[in-house]
Simulated scan of single mutants.
Amino acid sequence: MSAGPETTNISSLGKGDGLHQQVLASFPLCDMTEEDLTLNPQFCKLLATLAQHVDKTGLTVQLKTELDKAEQKLQSQRSHWLRSEILHRGLQEMSQDHCVRKHHTIVPPDQNMFYETMQKSMLVAQCVRQLDPSNTTNQDQPSVLGLTSQHLMELMPLEKNVQRMRRSLPHQLEMHLKEKCLSLLSYYQPEWENESEGLKTIKLSHLSAQLDKEKKRAESLKETCRENTVLLQRQTQLYLSELTKCIQLLQSLILDHRLKIQTDLDGKKLDYFEGKCELVLQKIKTEMVEIQLDTYKVDSISAHRKIREKLESELKACKAEKQAVELKLSSFEILGKEFESLAEEYCRLRQEIEMKNWALKEFTKYNDK
């Protein structure tokens, strides 16, 4: 029964590529691509269902509501603290400006009394705040040097001076803050520095709205930059994926056609080396002819050539005779060791016959003489 609403919710988000795009838009911080969602359809459906219960940052609706309330409360307390801090720092700056002014110009006595009363009041108030324990500290802890708030309040200026300072303080503080705002206006728009004070005051009233507008514009640009960064990362991943596919296709084409191309290349290289070898041989022959012409005369070269031809023919005849003798010898070796003894006896008898013939020829020559 629970599968029906879930299917309805998923189908309401879109189908196919539309569903993938909405899932990616719902989870911009996740490092996913459409290919990942296509390969994992069940995970894509899970994310589509989960997108109805969480926001882009991954927070649930209830937690987001509580976080917004806490953020509003924090902003309220922060604004209250900032107002107090701005006033306190403004008073400190006024006191510092008065101290600097005293060393450069003559300050009226009433202003000296005003700033001295303000400084003493601020110092006593700060010391009282340091001595007063807060709500989180132990009320029974010993005070510093045995001092209490009553002891410090005795150091306050005269009451009439304090009352006079309090009556003049709002106006003085307003003048100081106005001067700071005008300085901020001159920094924000330097071309307005030479304008009249009335015109500056009018433009100053719109400065807060302009700054708020600029802040919102900067935040919008920051958000746009973040979205463009996420989009760029996705496009980079897609580009790298397509580039990897192209490289794989190129590798397959190279592997398929490498043998054919290599064969053609080897044939061309072989033809080149054959032609180069033939050229080298012709050059060697040319050098040999030049050496012969430089060393011998034409008649000598012709005679040497004939001698060489005769020697080569005799060498050829000797080789043929050697081959015939080796053939006969191999045929005799087939007969075995018994024929070897007969051959030795035959050789011995031939030697004796040759010796006797030689002796007979010598004896005949001697008788003839």
Rank of each mutant, 00 (worst) to 15 (best):
E179W: 07
R348D: 06
I284P: 00
Q189F: 06
L59A: 09
S143E: 03
L24N: 00
K337C: 08
N112P: 01
E345Q: 14
C44D: 01
L185I: 01
I86L: 10
S183R: 08
Q92F: 03
L259V: 14
E278A: 09
T60L: 01
Q21E: 14
C246M: 15
I10V: 13
V289I: 15
L311E: 15
K180R: 07
D266M: 11
L82P: 00
D55C: 02
V144W: 05
T286F: 06
Q141L: 04
N9F: 13
L360R: 02
S2Q: 12
V144I: 13
Q22S: 14
T286D: 13
Q248N: 14
L173M: 08
N9D: 13
S241M: 05
L37M: 09
L39A: 12
M355D: 14
A359I: 07
A324M: 07
M175I: 12
A25S: 14
Y366R: 15
S84Q: 14
Q251I: 07
Q235G: 08
T105I: 11
D132Q: 12
V289Y: 05
Q119L: 06
H176N: 02
Y296V: 15
A343T: 05
K222Q: 11
S121G: 04
G14A: 04
A317G: 05
Q75E: 09
E154Y: 03
R101E: 13
C127N: 04
Q62P: 03
M32F: 08
L204S: 07
Q237Y: 03
K178S: 11
E242Y: 01
H20G: 01
D55H: 02
Q52R: 10
T364C: 03
S205E: 06
Q172E: 13
H206G: 05
F339D: 09
K69Q: 13
I284E: 05
E34M: 05
Q96D: 04
E227K: 15
L249I: 14
M122Y: 02
K260F: 08
L59N: 11
C347G: 14
S168R: 11
L281T: 08
K319W: 02
L293Y: 03
E345L: 06
K283G: 10
L199Q: 11
Q323T: 07
R101H: 07
C347F: 13
Q292L: 12
R164M: 14
G16N: 04
S183N: 06
T364W: 02
Q126F: 08
S300A: 14
H206A: 12
D294W: 04
S313Y: 00
G198Y: 01
S183D: 08
N40Q: 07
L232Y: 04
L63I: 08
L311K: 12
R258M: 08
E338K: 10
W81D: 14
D299P: 03
R226F: 05
L147Q: 01
V162M: 10
G267C: 08
P170G: 04
K297D: 15
K356Q: 03
Y239Q: 09
E321P: 00
D294M: 11
